[in-house]
């Protein structure tokens, strides 16, 4: 086995792992605050990629602006959805939240298929990040290095914001005891809107980062969210750092599988999920209520 192939696949694994991480911490924040398992996270990922493609094609707005604008638009759409739709199911059993967001996922996919058809659309790698470094033992494309750094930095910043800032303190309080937090004069419903917007914006940002690597298409997010769900079953939603570590490790394992057992690489995460369910049913960082 040539070392270049191994390192190349590990890099792809690392990239996927960091996408999983952005998706799963978004899910964890949303679940903590709203009690909703947001399966539509896959649709917001797709939207993030699509909006940057649209910004480029329709307005000539380039990658680095899109990196800010797309997640912002996705976040605003998310906030509007929270206000108009999700808010109505908070008092129902959690299953209804999953079903409602499933409806949103299906609707959004259908809408984008209606407008843009299913064919994939390429998004060019920005010229600043084209090319790569020859490290001697492997060729490292600049864009792929950038994706890993950008997404892991984002994840770390989210962790920092939640653990070390006053906004994070308030969000943790609202997650743990929303009723009392409101009784201190904190506008928890507004925080829920913000939390949902931020959570889906993370998925949108992952979508922008993914656009130059994978083709942009209406169905790009749906299969991804199922893998992310399996990762959440493995790692639990109780800890942000736990979610990041689990996601990246599983991405790397997938990369390894692509080298040694390519037919099964898309099943690695599911097989590990089964193993975890058998050996440690509550999950690796299980704090299930």
């Amino acid at each position: 086995m040539p070392i270049q192939a191994l390192l190349g696949q590990l890099l792809v694994g690392l990239i996927n792992g960091s996408f999983y991480a952005m998706m799963s911490i978004g899910l964890a924040i949303i679940f903590g605050l709203l009690g909703i398992t947001n399966i539509a996270q896959g649709a917001f990922y797709m939207m993030g990629a699509f909006f940057s493609w649209l910004l480029l094609r329709e307005a000539g707005i380039g990658y680095f602006y899109a990196l800010v604008l797309s997640p912002l638009i996705v976040g605003l759409i998310g906030a509007a959805i929270e206000r108009t739709l999700l808010r109505r199911v908070y008092k129902l059993p959690h299953e209804y939240g999953l079903l409602l967001t499933f409806g949103i996922l299906t609707f959004t996919q259908g809408l984008f298929i209606y407008i843009f058809q299913t064919a994939g659309r390429p998004y060019p790698v920005p010229t600043e990040l084209a090319g790569g470094f020859n490290l001697g033992f492997m060729f490292l494309p600049k864009y792929r290095a950038w994706v890993v750094i950008a997404s892991l930095t984002t994840c770390f910043l989210v962790w920092y914001a939640l653990e070390k800032t006053s906004l994070g303190r308030t969000l943790r309080a609202a997650t743990e005891n929303p009723t009392l937090t409101r009784a201190f004069g904190i506008n928890v419903p507004a925080l829920m809107t913000l939390g949902f917007g931020a959570g889906v914006a993370l998925a949108g940002a992952a979508g922008v980062l993914a656009a130059p690597i994978y083709t942009v298409s209406p169905i790009m997010g749906a299969d991804l969210i199922i893998v992310v769900f399996a990762i959440i079953v493995i790692g639990g939603m109780g800890s942000i750092m736990g979610a990041i570590v689990t996601s990246v490790s599983l991405g790397l394992l997938e990369g390894l599988a692509k080298v040694y057992y390519p037919q099964g690489s898309n099943m690695v995460v599911f097989v590990i999920m089964i193993a975890v369910l058998l050996l440690r049913p509550a999950g690796l960082f299980g704090r299930e209520k």
């Binding site: 309080a173 743990e176 005891n177 009392l180």
Partner: peptide
Amino acid sequence: RGIYSSLDVMENLMLPP
């Protein structure tokens, strides 16, 4: 009492606006 377990004492104290 309503003390938050996900916050330390200082964070509990500083939480209410």
